[in-house]
């Protein structure tokens, strides 16, 4: 990582309140994100993978400060240091909504659901123009035109249309154009292709890769589809129950996963090839615990095949492994999973 850091997430925790009693008092809290730290370097793509409920979307929305508006009473800890283009460093978690507003042009988001992420009452031109209008940019129409053409839409034909006239893939392109309108430094893509059809998914992935190069973007790519993340990302962080259990180069994490959870995750992905031998697949048992009944010690120990009694005592920290990634496991399985590379 020769490039400088753009975003440093330091020991961040996000706890949702649990209301109870007649007066709706806070009776407890569920930690959706639990002491997460990582650094995002300029120009790289970090893939954030995990299953539903692992806290990956919460983390993404915490960085861009969306939760404060929609969910009251959420408690945050830690620091999210953002290195602004002018050289100053701000802690995004410490900002008030008003102070956050100037940062908005530097951090943008691409949403998962192309159907709910566009205001059905606005035309495409209005949707893409909105961020420019907020910043009072001049010559907006021309910029909107360029952006729409860049993401593969026809500005003349489609600028005045409404979202309901577009297919899912086209809507996602509109969402991408909106996110790029202000030339942000950091784009958080929250499952941008998981709602799309296979044949459209690859179009959008290619578009994102091209645009990243062209606009010199730093991407935080949140997804549950490992094969997409592996294709898109330079590095991958695997989350389980609010914690990062493995972090490393995409190839290393995907080919030689170090954490038992990552191993199970990688081997669970269905391979589109009937001839692949599935007999040595690693299955994990049971169900993901909710953040409310989080196990003591290692969060994964209740479902881990190689858990030992002592796993209940200490919370494992990320430690480097021989294959080069960081793994949060007290007894990392020595022999790596023998997974035949998909393309072999």
């Amino acid at each position: 990582m020769s490039t400088p850091a753009l975003l440093e997430v330091r020991d961040v925790s996000v706890a949702y309140p649990i209301w109870g009693g007649i007066f709706r008092r806070r009776v407890g809290e569920g930690r959706a994100v639990d002491h997460v730290s990582f650094t995002l370097h300029k120009g790289e793509t970090l893939g954030l993978v995990g299953e539903s409920g692992c806290g990956k979307s919460t983390l993404a929305k915490t960085i861009i400060a969306l939760l404060r508006h929609t969910v009251p009473g959420v408690r945050y800890e830690g620091q999210i240091l953002f290195h602004r283009p002018d050289g100053s460093v701000v802690d995004l978690l410490a900002l008030t909504p008003r102070q956050m507003r100037p940062m908005r042009s530097e951090i943008q988001m691409i949403f998962q659901d192309p159907f709910s992420s566009l205001n059905p009452r606005m035309t495409v031109a209005e949707i893409v123009e909105a961020p420019l209008r907020v910043r009072r940019v001049k010559g907006r129409r021309a910029i909107v035109r360029d952006l729409l053409a860049r993401v593969g839409l026809d500005p003349d034909e489609q600028m005045g249309r409404y979202p309901h006239e577009f297919s899912g893939g086209q809507r996602q392109r509109i969402g991408i154009a909106r996110a790029l309108a202000l030339r942000p430094e950091l784009v958080i893509a929250d499952e941008p292709v998981s709602a799309l059809d296979v044949s459209v998914q690859s179009q959008v992935i290619n578009l994102l890769v091209e645009l990243q190069r062209e606009f010199d973007l730093t991407l935080l790519f949140v997804a549950h589809d490992l094969s997409v993340v592996e294709y898109m990302s330079d590095r991958i962080a695997v989350m389980y129950l609010g914690r990062i259990v493995e972090l490393g180069n995409a190839d290393a994490v995907y080919q030689t996963p170090g954490h038992p959870y990552t191993q199970a995750l990688v081997s669970s992905v269905p391979v589109p090839d009937p001839n692949v031998d599935r007999s040595n697949r690693i299955q994990i048992k049971g169900e993901i615990p909710t953040p409310l009944n989080r196990p003591t010690g290692c969060p994964f120990r209740t479902r881990c095949n190689i858990a030992r009694p002592s796993c209940a005592d200490t919370v494992p920290e990320l430690e480097p492994t021989p294959t080069g990634q960081l793994v949060a496991c007290l007894f990392p399985p020595g022999g790596q999973m023998e997974r035949p590379p998909a393309e072999a």
Binding site: K61, I64, A65, L66, H69, T70, R101, P102, R104, S105, I107, Q108, M109, F111, Q112, D113, S116, S117, L118, N119, P120, A130, P131, V134, R135, G175, R178, L182
Partner: peptide
Amino acid sequence: EKSRDYVGAAIATGE
């Protein structure tokens, strides 16, 4: 409506 993504997108653009 406010939990839908287009509102999130509006917040994220600084409206």
